[in-house]
Amino acid sequence: MAMTTTAGRAHADPHHIGLVIEHPGPASKRIVTAYGFWVFLLSDIVMFSCFFAAYAVLAGQTAGGPKGSEIFEPRNVAIETVCLLLSSFTCGMASIAADVRNRFWFYLGMAVTCGLGVVFLIIEFREFADLVSRGYGPSRSAFLTAFFSLVGCHGLHVSAGVLWLLTMVAQVFAKGFRADILRRMMCFALFWHALDIIWVAVFSVVYLLGSGA
């Protein structure tokens, strides 16, 4: 029986991979939107790779200024990392809540995500302000230029993410869990998780490798 049905649908499964596709038609808007945003995120990661390449080349060019191991504080970096990891988790909880249309857990998840993102930004801003006040601003050496560009670019992304998060909460508050709002929420979750992946590269390459060297 299975053979006859398979033979009848042979044209739908030309490579005999066992998947019979009944002319599914164009992909749904949710898939197209998220796929397009996924391609944007990958291009964003490619852009970050240029900053990483610049940092890798310039990490040793301190021009008599401080080395990485003299200015990095592992304790602050650990707190920042835990903040971003937990915020990625709570963002996942918020997107599950949005999918099952539970307002309370959605607002709670987004509020915690926002709080953790803001704590991350405050710690990073104080680190930057402290470095600049000690005379170790981005113009001090090529190493510091690359450091401020790379980490600052990630910080700008997190700032944009926090603003986007607030607009998502406002949209759900005003319009409810409509299909288009859920698509935006999905893109936001992808964005936030991608920022976490970039931070993994930042704390490993910049802070941990830099403090050992």
Binding site: M1, A2, M3, T5, T6, G18, L19, V20, I21, E22, P24, A27, R30, I31, T33, A34, Y35, F37, W38, S95, M186, A189, L190, H193
Partner: peptide, 15 residues
């Protein structure tokens, strides 16, 4: 024959 019972191969959005 056991594979033909898989759900139709729709794509999945990232995330």
């Amino acid at each position: 024959s056991d594979q033909t019972h898989m759900p139709a191969g729709h794509d999945l959005a990232p995330g």
